[in-house]
Amino acid sequence: MAPDSLGFIFLNAFLINNFVLALFLGLCPFMGVSGKIKTAAPMGAAVTFVMLVASSCAFGINRLLVRFDIEYLRLIAYIAVIASAVQLVEMTIKKFSPTLFRMLGIFLPLITTNCAILGMALFQTFLEYSFIQSLVYSLGAGAGFSLALILMAGMREKLDLANVPDACMGTAAALMIAGLLSLAFMGFAGLGG
C-alpha cells in the first residue's frame, strides 16, 4: 500500500503506531478507566468522537494560522478547540445517559488533557495530511485507543481473580500487562509495508 493511501493511514494509526502502546499517548485514561470493559468501551467511543471533532477543527484552524502567519499560536488554539469539544461531549452524555456520566466520572472532563488527542492534532499537522486524510487518521487513532483500552480492560478483569504477589498488586501489574501488550503490538511493525 502507498504510504499516503487512506487504508494505510488508518492501519498505521490503528495498529502499527498504536497511540497508546507504541507512542505512549493517553496513558492516564488508559490506566485509569481500563478496570472494566463496561466503562472502557464508552470511554473509547467518547475519545474517538472528540478526536474526530478536534481533527476537523484543527485542520481548519491550521489553515487560518498559516494564512495569517501566526503559527506560534497553534498550541493554544488547538487546546481551546479540544476543551470545547470535550465540553460538548460531556453535555451530550449527561443529557442522554446520566448513568454513564456518573460511571466515567472525573475521567470525562480529563479527556481535555488526554495527550492522545492533542498529539493526534499535532501529528496530522506535521504530516501535512489533507482534510480527508486527517479524518481517517483521527478515526484510526480513536479506534486504536479503544482497542487498547478494551484489550487491557479484559485482561485486568481476569487479573482481579488471579493470585498476584502483594508487591506487584495494582499499578505495577497493570504496567507489566501494558508492556506485554505493547510487545505484542510490535509484531504489527511490518504490516502494510
Binding site: 506487584c168 504496567l175 505493547s182
Partner: peptide
C-alpha cells in the same frame, strides 16, 4: 533492544514500582 523500544518503558517503570512497594512493606 527491547528496553529502548516502547515495551521497555512499561517494564522499567513497573520494576521501580515493585521495588518501592517491597521497600515500603
Amino acid at each position: 533492544a527491547v528496553f529502548i523500544l516502547p515495551p521497555g518503558g512499561f517494564f522499567v517503570l513497573s520494576f521501580w514500582l515493585v521495588l518501592f512497594a517491597v521497600v515500603a512493606k
